[in-house]
Every structure is written in structure tokens, then in C-alpha cells.
Design a binder for these strands. Structure first.
Lengths: 155, 155
DNA sequence: TAAGATTGAGTCTTCAATCTTC
DNA sequence: GAAGATTGAAGACTCAATCTTA
């Protein structure tokens, strides 16, 4: 009944949590200070630029960011009010809404990307050897895959 | 000027973010469903049980959880209202407030711990080989240490 | 009836200002 | 004046209910 986790694995878990909190917190502050952009907004802009047609449905955005749909609605409300994205109705399915980068949104993303990438490099990736990076990718992919299997069973 | 991050390292970073979001989200739901306890509350109870005298000052709690002090105040408000912790004034420094586990809080922690540890084992540590766990601990410790050096310079 | 998206109410967080004690 | 803690106002998220279209 008592789940046993050895000290080495527990250290890995606690280190994982600490790094997430500290590194992401730092990246948020750098982006806010230097480009005045919340990290959540950056992630939305990036998803839109990487999308096949340069646009996404509201629920695709929600699923990608692991947000509820209402949270996605309100996040896009704010980003749209700032003029960085535009909504447009879907022709095919008139229940649907597309979100698209505006020119201003693209310009903002171009301004923010170097800052954020520099932060990721400085605070995370530059501390990894090639071998360590490979181990991390492998392990993270494995953990994600196992969780996906599990959730599909449940759902 | 353009920060270059090779594909392997970027995969490590993206995997890291994905795992955090999915695993922590899952652990939150399991704790809420099975013990009706928010993960934030669990972390506070655990910190208190691990504290030297079984109690912590408000600002120690805030610093440990990387929370602002006002967030800590309100979090403790809620946990205290539920009867899981108690506040008491400090004798030595009368500006200070101590937070301490109540018997009910300790009982709740004992009920929650197996559920949470089982979750960590199931969704994270069980997917690591001994070598992978060692690499993770090492890397996470190094990244945290570098960030601490950096922030001390700035502050 | 179900799916896509939004809205209202409630929760939790942060920022800035405040109050008390050092 | 500075540190410890709290409070008011506002931002951002979730749940449940609602509206529209399929």
C-alpha cells in the first residue's frame, strides 16, 4: 500500500518542480520587463504562427494550451483587445471561430522571440550536455506517452 | 544576436514543459478527487511537517512556495478556516506570525500522502531508470544553482 | 441531442497601499 | 526608515449554465 520511491528518484522529482517554478518564473519576468508581454500571450502568438493556415479554432487553442474553453475565450478577448489577434467566423461550420495573428501580433512575436529564446538558452538549455539533452528528451517523451495512454483509457 | 538552440535541446525544453503541465495537472485532479485537497494545500501541510519546529513564519512559507506574501496570507486564511493549520503570534518578534499544523491537518496530510506519492510514482518516477534519475537530479540541481547565482547578483 | 463558443459567479493570484513592530 | 503581515482592487482561471448551429 505504501508507495516507495527511492531517494534518487525523489530528488529528480523535487528538482524537476523547483526548476520549473524558478525558470518559468524568471522567463515570465524577463518577457514582461523587456517586451511587456505576458508569457501566456507569447505562447498563443507562437501557436498561431506555427499553425498550418496561420489560424486556429478556439478549441484547438484551448487544447494546445491545456486551458478550459472559457479560459481560452477570455484570454483571446484580452489579446484581441490589445490588437494582437483577430477573430473571424468559420464559413464551413458557423458555430466555429478562428483566431489569427494580426500584423501587430506578428511584429510583437518577432520582438519577443529573441528575448524568450535567449532566456531559454541562458537559464535552461545551455546547462545541458548533448547526452543530457538526449536523456531529457527521451524521458519526457516517455512520460508524456504513458500519460496519454492512461488518459485515453479513462476517457 | 539571434540565440541558437539546437533541435535536441529544444526538444528537451518542450518536453519538460509538457510533462510539467500534464503530470502536475493529473496529480492535482487525483488529490482533489480522492482526498478533496488542493495540491497547494498539500504542499503547505508538507512544508509545515518538515519544518524544524513543526512551524513556519508566514514569509518562510511564502519563500518556500515562491508565493508573494499576500498570496501566502490568503492561502493560510483558507487553510486555517478549514481547521488544518493554526496561526500563533511570535513571542520574540511581535511582528511575526507562526503557522502550525493542527491535529486535523496532520491527519489530512497522512491521508493525502499515499495518494500523492502513488501519483508521483505512477506518472513520473516509475518511468526513470536509475541512470536517468541520476542525470535528471544532476541537471536540475545544476540549473537551479546557476539561477540562484544569477539572482543573487541582480538582487 | 451534441458541439463550439461565450457568459456569470466564485476562487485564487498579484500589485500597491496600509498597519504594526523593530 | 525598514521588515513582517495584512487588506483593497484588479487580473486571470474554473465550473456550471446558456446561446447558437449542426
Amino acid at each position: 500500500m505504501r508507495p516507495e520511491i527511492d531517494a534518487g528518484r525523489m530528488a529528480a522529482w523535487r528538482g524537476f518542480l523547483t526548476v520549473y517554478a524558478r525558470v518559468v518564473g524568471r522567463l515570465e519576468r524577463e518577457l514582461a520587463d523587456e517586451v511587456d508581454l505576458p508569457l501566456t500571450w507569447y505562447e498563443v502568438l507562437l501557436l498561431l504562427r506555427e499553425a498550418p493556415d496561420g489560424r486556429l479554432r478556439m478549441h484547438e487553442l484551448a487544447d494546445s494550451r491545456l486551458l478550459t474553453r472559457s479560459a481560452a475565450t477570455r484570454l483571446v478577448d484580452r489579446i484581441e483587445a490589445a490588437g494582437l489577434v483577430t477573430r473571424s467566423a468559420s464559413e464551413a461550420d458557423r458555430r466555429g471561430t478562428f483566431v489569427e495573428l494580426s500584423p501587430k501580433g506578428l511584429a510583437t512575436l518577432r520582438r519577443a522571440a529573441p528575448v524568450h529564446l535567449r532566456g531559454i538558452a541562458t537559464h535552461f538549455t545551455s546547462h545541458l550536455s548533448d547526452e543530457e539533452a538526449a536523456v531529457l528528451s527521451t524521458v519526457m517523451a516517455r512520460i508524456t506517452a504513458e500519460l496519454c495512454v492512461l488518459e485515453d483509457q479513462v476517457v
